[in-house]
Design a protein around this nucleic acid. Structure first.
Lengths: 153, 153
DNA sequence: ATATATGCAAAGCTTTTGCTGAAGA
DNA sequence: TCTTCAGCAAAAGCTTTGCATATAT
C-alpha cells in the first residue's frame, strides 16, 4: 500500500468526503483512528489502536474505537481482516491482497501475488455468491522460527 | 469426507489407538464428542457440540467440550478451522480442503478443488515457514441470497 | 438548533483456569 | 493404585449496548 504523505492525505480526504456525503460529522476521533490505521502495518485490533491513539486523544475510549471501526467498514475505507480467532483485526488497505499469519506471535503480514489473485471460486461453489477470495498462509514467521530453535520446548 | 459407517468406525478406532499410544484414557465424553464431530457437516463450535452431545451425556459441561477439542487437535484427529472471528469452529476432516463462508448465516462449507490445492506460498513469503495454505471464499450462500431478495433491507 | 458521536459503565459472549471428586488404565 | 479426566464455578478476555453529555454541522 502506498504510504507516501500524499497518499495519506488523499486517503484522509477520501474519508472526509465520504462522511460529508452521508451527513456524518468528521470528528477528531475518526481522523486520529484513521491516521493510526493508515500508519499501521500490523493489522491492529481495536485495543492496539486504542493504545496508539490514546497518547494523542487521552479521553478516548475503547468503545469509541469499536464504533469508529464499524463506521469505517461501512464507509468502505477500511475492512476487517478475516484472520485469527482471538480478536478482530482491521486494515485500511482495501485493495486485493492476501495474508500470512504467524500462529505463534499472531503477526499478520500482507501478501501481494498475482498468482493468488487468479484464484477463483470453483464450480463446486454454484449458488454461492462470492464477495471475496482470501488466501491465508498459516505458519511460523522468521523471527519466531529462530526463537523456537534457540529455546526448544 | 467419507461418512460411511465403516469410515466412522475406522476414525473412532484411530482415536482410541492414539489415546492408548499416549496412555490417555478413552472416556465416554471423548467418544461422544468425536462421533458428533464426525457426523457434523457444519464445522461446529464448542457450544454447538455441547448442545448435540448433551442429549446423550446429560452431565456434560461446556468446559469439557473445550478441553476435549484441544486434545483432539493435539492428537491430530481434528482441527480448528481458521475462519470467522465470532467463535472457534472445529472439523474432524483433517484432509486438505478449503472453505466457503457465508458472512450472513456463518455457515462454513467444505470445498475440494485441486486448483486451490496448487496454491503455494509465493516467493514474497521467504523466511516464513508455511504450515498450511487455506483458501477462504467469503460471500453469501444460496439460501441467504434468497432471503435477502425476499425481504430487502 | 439538531442530529450524531463520544465516553462511561454495565452487560453479554466465548473461552480459560483451578480445584475436587470421579473414573479409566 | 495412580494418573488423568470431568464437572463445576469463577475469572478473564473481547465486544456490544444503553444512556447522558458533548460536539460537529
Amino acid at each position: 500500500m502506498d504510504r507516501s504523505p500524499a497518499a495519506i492525505t488523499a486517503r484522509v480526504e477520501d474519508l472526509v468526503a465520504r462522511c460529508r456525503a452521508r451527513g456524518m460529522p468528521v470528528t477528531p476521533q475518526r481522523l486520529a483512528i484513521f491516521r493510526a490505521l493508515l500508519a499501521a502495518q500490523d493489522h491492529p485490533s481495536a485495543e492496539m489502536l486504542y493504545q496508539r491513539v490514546r497518547t494523542e486523544l487521552p479521553t478516548l475510549s475503547v468503545a469509541t474505537v469499536y464504533k469508529v471501526l464499524e463506521t469505517f467498514t461501512d464507509l468502505g475505507v477500511a475492512r476487517e481482516v478475516p484472520v485469527l480467532n482471538d480478536c478482530r483485526r482491521f486494515d485500511a488497505n482495501v485493495a486485493r491482497h492476501h495474508h500470512m499469519v504467524c500462529t505463534t506471535c499472531k503477526q499478520v503480514t500482507d501478501l501481494y501475488d498475482v498468482a493468488l489473485d487468479e484464484v477463483k471460486p470453483p464450480p463446486a461453489a454454484r449458488g454461492f455468491r462470492a464477495h471475496e477470495v482470501s488466501v491465508q498462509i498459516l505458519g511460523t514467521c522468521a523471527s519466531c522460527a529462530r526463537a523456537v530453535r534457540a529455546t526448544p520446548p
